[in-house]
Amino acid sequence: MNDRLWNVIVDSFPKLLEYGLKATIPLTILSFALALVIAVAVALIQYAQVKPLLPVCRFYIWLIRGTPLLVQLYVVFYVLPEIGILLDAFPVAVIVFGFNEGAYMAETIRGSLESVSVGQMEAGYCVGLNYMQTMAHIVLPQAFRTAFPALSNSLISMLKGTSLASTITVREMLTEAKIINGRVLETGGLYVEVAVIYLAFCTLLTWLQHVLERRLARHGGTVK
């Protein structure tokens, strides 16, 4: 490796990390929080068969799963202003990532809810709990435990996916790399550096996932 490349990498590292921490991570957290809220709501509507809302949920999942994420970003970013809604790029990214991953996570959570045996629900009724209480104390916690590994995967894939926000002018880690790259004309090397930082973030999340999974397993043993 030549000295110039090495210097560029070392000099750019603080800037890239800074944008990783102040843009990529918040973007991931906010989008994931939104996705989780949407996913739980959609999954509960389907699980509880809330008739009037079922078609809405089905349409939403169909729409999201049938179109590419990048196209969804473009559509929202370029079409909203034309109908008079002016939003910054960052909130647009949060909304698109949230709604996108929310559709997949809804399916995960719905599957987990349905994997809780009806006997758990019936036992809840028999000790005097009502529907809401049984859901809150018995069914949802068990479903969450089942869904946890898949939800962790969603979080990790979302973290990587936020790099797409660079295409709609959000200033995050990859955008920053592009900017620096344009200045120093050091194609390639900087992107390897960005990849390494993503890798570090994801490794951290994977480690966190394992720690939490072990803790969940201790509280309740294995759920059959």
């Binding site: 045996s117 006997g119 758990q120 019936e122 036992a123 809840g124 009724y125 028999c126 000790v127 005097g128 104390h137 018995i138 916690p141 068990q142 435990r145 509280h219 309740g220 043993g221 759920v223 059959k224």
Partner: peptide
Amino acid sequence: RKKTAFVFQNYNLFLNK
């Protein structure tokens, strides 16, 4: 249901409790 109890063939204990 307040005045009755039900014991199931497969126990149905709350698995997360």
